[in-house]
Amino acid sequence: MIGLSTNHARTGRMFSRTDQSIVGQWWWTVDRVLLSIMLALAGIGIVMVVTGSPPVAERLGLDQYYFFKRHMVFLVPSLLAMIGLSMCSHRTIWRIASVILAGSILCMAFVLVAGAEVKGAQRWIHLPFGSIQPSEFAKPAFAVVIAWFMARQKDQPGFPGDRLAAGLYALLISLLILQPDFGMSMLVTAIIVGQVFLAGLPLRLVVGLGGVAALGGVGAYFGLHHVRSRIDRFLNPETGDTYQIDLARQAFQEGGAFGAGPGQGTVKLAIPDAHTDFVFSVAGEEMGLVLLLIIIGLFAWVILRGLNRVMDSDNMFVILGTGGLLTMFGCQSLVHMGSNLALIPTKGMTLPFLSYGGSSLVAVGIGMGFLLALTRRQGRSTIAKGGMAPKTQMNAS
């Protein structure tokens, strides 16, 4: 009993508002609602992978729970990265992001020379424990690094932040096109367009980036066969094979309002990528429309909550970094859901936290760790000047 009392006392001191330890300060400044939503999505993801992946594993001649076991192996470091990064200061966040981005770019260049080719694309590096897709890690790091470049130029007009951000974007896009990865290219473009808009930079830059995206889309349509095929099938289903999307729509229809129940779906048995690119349709069949709307609501809550946390902030780095990360999270989610519902051309993109993943799951954890760190209630700092200058506290929400 004495031991239990001592433990309770220690726990109380750790989470008291006057506690100056790293964990204590983190607990009272991090957005615990936002963290709880992310953990809830991760929990739903566990359910979806354990029910959606066995048919895929059996078709490949693997153990029934092969993908589920691997999902759990990657989920643990993903959540640890998310919580660990959320404890970091703003300066530490952009330093870590810079290292991750530099490493990702080097690995993306290496992939073009010696990477593994899968379905006509070179995006992966094969290692003894699995494959790594470097571009997944580049996304959140890119959002943070260019936010710092733009913010520093705002604070120090002589600093060429905008030009550095544009050059970094051009380099990253070039590597993605060479892989090729059209979907990731559009996602990275959406990130920088959103940040340019938030930064209040000249409208011509926003229009210019929009023009680049449009030209890229046209070029991808005429230059990449698989992109043209997907768009043609979307506009005119009779021009090609629509097997997967037909099954996805059937899964939603079979699910109805309340679903067949976890593990009870039958359409999912035939969907080739039920545990990754079409996990949303599996959720529709087994959970039904009601719970599907709840899942959509959780994704929307993350975005609205994150924006609300920085609404009154005067720290440009925090505003741009948060905006870029939320753009990444929201666009990736919308592309996955829209593809599953046949609202946009089919694009193989995972649903954050819900899809089975290795690189993608860990990268989501890193990105959301950055987001939690940037949205913490703390003294505002001027990153460009290198100081953590206490100012007015961020409003609690």
Rank of each mutant, 00 (worst) to 15 (best):
Y221R: 13
T266N: 13
A260G: 14
G210N: 03
I245S: 05
L171N: 07
G255H: 08
V267I: 14
L168R: 06
E238I: 04
V145A: 02
G167E: 01
V218H: 09
R233G: 14
P202A: 14
Q179M: 04
Q156R: 13
P180V: 05
F222P: 01
P262F: 02
A260H: 12
I231D: 06
F258H: 12
G265A: 03
A260R: 14
R233F: 07
E254Q: 14
R204G: 12
A138V: 00
D277A: 07
A165L: 05
P272C: 10
A165W: 00
Y243A: 07
T276C: 05
P262R: 02
L178Y: 04
V218L: 15
F159K: 02
F182A: 00
P272F: 09
R152F: 12
F197Y: 10
G223V: 11
V188D: 03
Q264A: 14
G223P: 09
I231W: 01
L164D: 03
G216P: 01
G240N: 06
F252S: 02
Q250K: 13
I146M: 05
A220Y: 13
D232L: 09
A141P: 05
G240T: 02
F197I: 11
P272G: 11
S174C: 13
A270N: 14
V267P: 04
L215E: 10
A213Y: 01
L215H: 11
